[in-house]
Structures are given as C-alpha cells and as structure tokens.
Amino acid sequence: MARGDVCPICGRSDLEPHEIAGEGRVIVWTTIHVPPTRYADEAPYTVAIVELEAGLRTMGRLTGNAGRELGAHVRLRRVDPDRGPMFEAVESDAPRAESL
C-alpha cells in the first residue's frame, strides 16, 4: 500500500502511515541460488514473506542463516533503499521491543 491507494476493505483513499513494531513470523522463505543480474554477487541469499502485527504481510530479505523455517520469529533491521525490508532472526524469543 502507498499513499493515495484505495483501502481494499472499505474503499477509502485517505490513508495515513501508521507506525508498527517491526517483528513478525516467517510465512514462507526461499534461498535464491540463481539471482537476477543486479544481485549476481549476493547469491545465495534468502527472501521471506513475513507476517507482522495485525496480519500485515511483506516480502523482505532475511539476513544471516538463522530463521529459515516456517514460523521463525524475525524482526526488521532496516529498510535498504534498493532491496527494501531487511529482516533478521530473533535468536531468543524475547518480548517484542524494537519498533520501526
């Protein structure tokens, strides 16, 4: 969703940004071994669909080797200007602390 989009549920277009804590669970993941040319030097790397609070789903990179399992607890580390959301596994299932 971006500013100006229409809400798929209520049809309104006066949407506003809303801050959320950047933690969630891995819905599915894949490790890319054959990359597109622009990321040729980065493969293998892992991409995952993460479900954040309130059921919001987003695609992002999963950095490091941990978290490659369904339901893994991950948190947003940063938003890369080219690659978008970069997640990392939360090593211990500590209470949610970090926010966007």
């Binding site: 971006a2 993941w29 894949t30 980065e42 991409v47 695609m59 080219d82 690659r83």
Partner: peptide
C-alpha cells in the same frame, strides 16, 4: 517490483514459496 522483486525474489523463488506452502 516495488513490493517484492527488488528484494531479489525471482520467479523460481516465488514458486519455491508456493511449493513450500
């Protein structure tokens, strides 16, 4: 592109996710 492919997802990658699911 904006929501997903810029992450480095590919079409084989997309269907890998479908396969896993």
């Amino acid at each position: 592109e904006w929501l997903e492919m810029r992450t480095g997802l590919t079409f084989p990658g997309a269907f890998a996710m479908v396969m896993q699911a």
